[in-house]
Amino acid sequence: MDAAAVDLDRPLRLYPLTFLEEGDEVTVGRADIDSYGLFPADGAALLRRLETGETPNDAARWYNTQYGETVDMVEFLEVLEAFELLVPDGEEVAEVRAVRWQGLGKALFSPVAWVLYGLLFIAGIVAMFREPAVVPTYQNIFFTSSSLVALALGNVLGQAPWILLHESYHALAGRRLGLNSSLSIGRRFYYVVFLTKLDGLVAVPRRKRYLPMLAGMLVDVLVVTGLTLGAVPLVSSDGFAGFLGRFLLAMAFGTLLRFAWQFYFFLRTDLYFLATTVLGCNDLQSVAKGMLQNRLYGLIGRRDKIVDAETWTPRDREVARWYVWLMVTGYAVLTGLLITAVIPAAIRITGLAVGKLFSDTSPLNVLDVTVFLVLNFGELILAGILAVRGYRRRTLATAN
């Protein structure tokens, strides 16, 4: 559909839209494809006129009467088209389907569930006070001394079910509100992450966004206390029972580390989204990066590269002025950690593995060393691959 060629004396067809009024702006969009825009109040009012079946010309006349100005209707229709809000000619609007698992989402955050979560948490804390052997400590990671591969395998694969549970809780807290979600793998600096896409949250009132954002960390706490409770009767045993108890504690400590990782808010973790929601921001990280790039381009005289600050919301601009320094400091600290800890550790681990390889070249030992190296460096290498792919995609998009 070409907005310029639209007959302005015929009503338009629009997809089912959601409207959320917040202060001076209205978030309008389509829940089925998660396409949302922040409209000024007059723009949202004009859109509502079109939605009721008024022709664009009639709506423009109404706008003129209401606001005393002539609206650029063709340009407004181009905006609606860019957000895919207009139904193209010859296309039917599919019925909006209810999301799956909404019932489970409601059950997991029902009053009964909250009571059970509270009891589990209290029982876990009491167990830690009564049984010092199950208190989380970094030594719990070393649950076996039989094989380095078994140790690395246990710590990497042992997190998989709890990561999926973390992401499922985000998704189900979203489903409870009737929102679509999807799971993918992405990267945050040199960390590989699992991501739950919940763009529909921008269309629900802010106070309802907190639970879906915090649901993952909530379940992390429950996993730590649950695994700790499970380890209590096992940890002082011999044989397999003792091994199982130690493995449960290793998984609990790994979960605790992932919980702590959420405090790296500048990597756009769950706590970043929580903070930006509280602060009333829209896309703080992008604005902070844009602000930093503008400053750098200004310094090197590339004024043609500077992004117009008017494209950012006033609140984002206001917060980004101080957030940008937190973000830069955060990245600097993580870079320092990479140079002083991760890379030296990687070199040392590789040295040990290569030494072991040359001391015994039997197929079993080669396999042992290979698996060990993959487990240790797989994540860093995958993060590197994702970074290169992302850079290429951005370069290609800019070139086009």
Partner: peptide, 20 residues
Amino acid sequence: MKKIVVRKAGTVRLTSAATC
């Protein structure tokens, strides 16, 4: 002519570190 400026809404990606 009054132009109506519409900004793109931010995205929400809730994360968990993959593992170390």
